[in-house]
Amino acid sequence: MIVGVVPGEAVATDVLVEAIEEAGDTARVGAADAILDADPALLITVGEDALLSLAEERPVAPILPIAAQRGIQSPAGSDAARAISSALDGAGVERTHPHLTVVLDGEPVDTALMDVMLVTSEPARISEYAIGRDGTRISSVRADGVVVATPAGSHGYAAAADGPSLAVGTDVVCVVPIAPFHTSALSWVLDANGVTLSVLRDEGDVSLLVDGHDRGTVGRNGRLELLADGTIRLLCVPEGRPAYP
Rank of each mutant, 00 (worst) to 15 (best):
H182D: 14
S207I: 09
T120Q: 01
T170H: 04
E9R: 15
R28N: 10
A87P: 00
T196I: 12
G90K: 14
T183L: 15
R201Q: 15
D115Q: 11
V15N: 07
S74E: 09
I126C: 08
P180A: 03
T150W: 03
A243S: 13
D110Q: 05
R233D: 06
R241M: 13
V147E: 00
A38D: 14
P245Y: 08
S207Q: 03
V176R: 07
V206C: 10
Q73L: 09
A80N: 02
V218M: 07
A158H: 11
P75I: 06
T96V: 12
L64M: 07
A67P: 03
I20D: 06
I66N: 07
A80D: 04
H213S: 14
N221S: 15
S154W: 00
V29P: 06
P123G: 02
V116P: 05
A192G: 04
A91G: 06
L64E: 07
A31W: 03
V189W: 01
G8N: 10
V172C: 05
H182T: 15
A243C: 02
M114H: 14
T26P: 02
H97T: 09
V173C: 05
A167L: 15
D49G: 11
G222T: 04
H213Q: 15
G8V: 08
H182L: 13
R233M: 02
L64I: 11
A159H: 11
Y129E: 02
V199P: 07
L200H: 00
G106H: 13
E21H: 11
C174H: 05
V11T: 12
V15I: 15
L113R: 04
T136L: 14
C236R: 11
G240H: 13
D115A: 09
E239T: 07
D79H: 12
I20T: 12
R58Y: 07
T45A: 10
C236A: 10
S74N: 11
A32F: 08
G145L: 11
R215M: 12
H182C: 04
D14M: 07
P151H: 01
L190E: 06
Q73W: 05
